[in-house]
Amino acid sequence: MTLSNLLIAIDAGGTKCHAILYDTAQQKTLAQVKTGSANLASNYSSALSNIQQACTDVLKQVGLTDSNLAKLAVYAGLAGVNFPQIAKKLSQWQHPFKSFGFTTDLHLACYGAHQNSQGNVIIVGTGSCGIAISKTKSVVLGGYGHKLGDQASGAWIGQQAVQVSLLTLDGLLKPNVLTQAICNVSQINSPAELSQYWHTANPAQFSELADIVFSCAQQQDEQAILIINQAARYIEQLFNQLLKTQAGPTCIVGGISKRITPWLSQSVKTQLSEAQTEPVYGALTLYQNPALCLN
């Protein structure tokens, strides 16, 4: 194992930070780890801490210490750097690595899905958005956060479930399985207390409720089905708009992609392509094409 041949690749999103140690000479992954949420726009300092922890932990797996970080290049796709002020702030970060190149987690997912610097991809994880990358430009749709958009994201789905629960507890909707499930996981049955409990929740916390919504939808709960169908229709809108921007293979990736895909129309499902690799491997495209880095 020669240090000069090693790099650390990172995919940092709203729920987790995925890091791999990659040997470019052997074209082989030597180790990988996952740490906590790393959305720089939601919590900048915590995200940086989890990114650095992931780098330290992945080195430990092969018997290296964090003192070796200064000898390694790091390439990353990061949630939050789609906001210009966050990207500017990160560009000025005094990082501990030999070199540090980054782009958005959306670009990284696209590079990984197509093993190329071009293509279309829709991400549905803690957040949701779409991107079409060509030789001359990239067009991003969505990615505004669950408060303003991300209508197919885990965070948005979870937030909608809490809203339904509050309406139900107020007597504005008939009793439903979804509300009971949300009250059970929150251990709260009062609308005022439930509102207070979720009022300051972050995207990752809301996203943890998405599995409950899918489970309730499978039980034919009307409110859960309405939420999932709305998310699915939004994905279809993204898909069609991406194809208008650029024809070609389109992949859907992310933490809830496998759960939401069955809810898409048959015409969209038959047009989707399989992602070639996980998003983290999109960092290899950055390594091969440093000009793609935002910094």
Rank of each mutant, 00 (worst) to 15 (best):
H199Y: 15
Q160S: 06
S215Y: 11
E222W: 06
G145L: 13
I227V: 06
S195Y: 12
N202K: 14
V162F: 11
A224W: 02
A217G: 04
Q220W: 07
T168K: 12
Q151G: 07
I227M: 09
I212P: 04
A152Q: 01
E193C: 02
C183N: 04
G143Q: 08
Q230G: 15
I188P: 03
A231Q: 11
Q220Y: 06
N202R: 10
L209F: 01
G143D: 09
I227N: 01
Q230S: 15
G143C: 09
N229P: 05
S195E: 09
Q187C: 15
L194E: 02
V185K: 15
D170C: 06
Q180G: 09
Q163E: 08
K174D: 14
V164W: 00
I188D: 03
Q223G: 01
Y197T: 05
Q159A: 11
L148D: 15
S186Y: 00
S207I: 01
A204K: 04
S215L: 14
P203C: 12
Q218R: 13
S207V: 02
D170T: 02
L209P: 00
F214P: 08
Q220E: 13
T200E: 15
N189Y: 09
Q151F: 10
L178R: 08
C216T: 07
Q205R: 14
H146V: 03
L178D: 10
K174F: 10
L173D: 07
I182R: 01
G143S: 06
Q218S: 15
A192W: 07
W198F: 12
Q196T: 12
P191F: 06
C216N: 11
E193D: 15
Q196C: 05
L167M: 10
A201C: 12
G171T: 13
D221H: 05
A192D: 13
Q187N: 15
V164N: 05
H199V: 11
N229Q: 13
S195G: 14
N202V: 13
Y144P: 04
E222L: 06
C216H: 05
L178G: 11
T179M: 03
F214H: 01
K174R: 13
G158K: 04
P175G: 13
G143R: 00
I182H: 02
T179Q: 01
D221G: 03
E208P: 08
G171Q: 04
G149V: 11
I228G: 01
G158P: 05
L226F: 13
Q163M: 07
Q196V: 14
D211G: 12
D221P: 01
A192V: 08
L166Y: 06
A231L: 02
N189D: 14
Q223D: 05
I182W: 01
Q223K: 10
A161D: 00
I228P: 00
Q180I: 05
K147T: 06
A201P: 08
N176Y: 07
I157M: 05
S207H: 10
F206C: 02
Q159W: 10
D150I: 13
Q151K: 13
D170V: 00
H146A: 03
A201K: 07
A210R: 04
V177E: 09
Q160G: 03
D211L: 08
L172I: 06
S195M: 10
N229L: 11
I188R: 01
Q230F: 10
Q223C: 09
S190Q: 10
S186R: 03
I157F: 07
A204N: 09
N189K: 13
S153H: 09
Q159M: 14
G158C: 07
I227E: 02
Q223F: 00
I228M: 12
I182E: 02
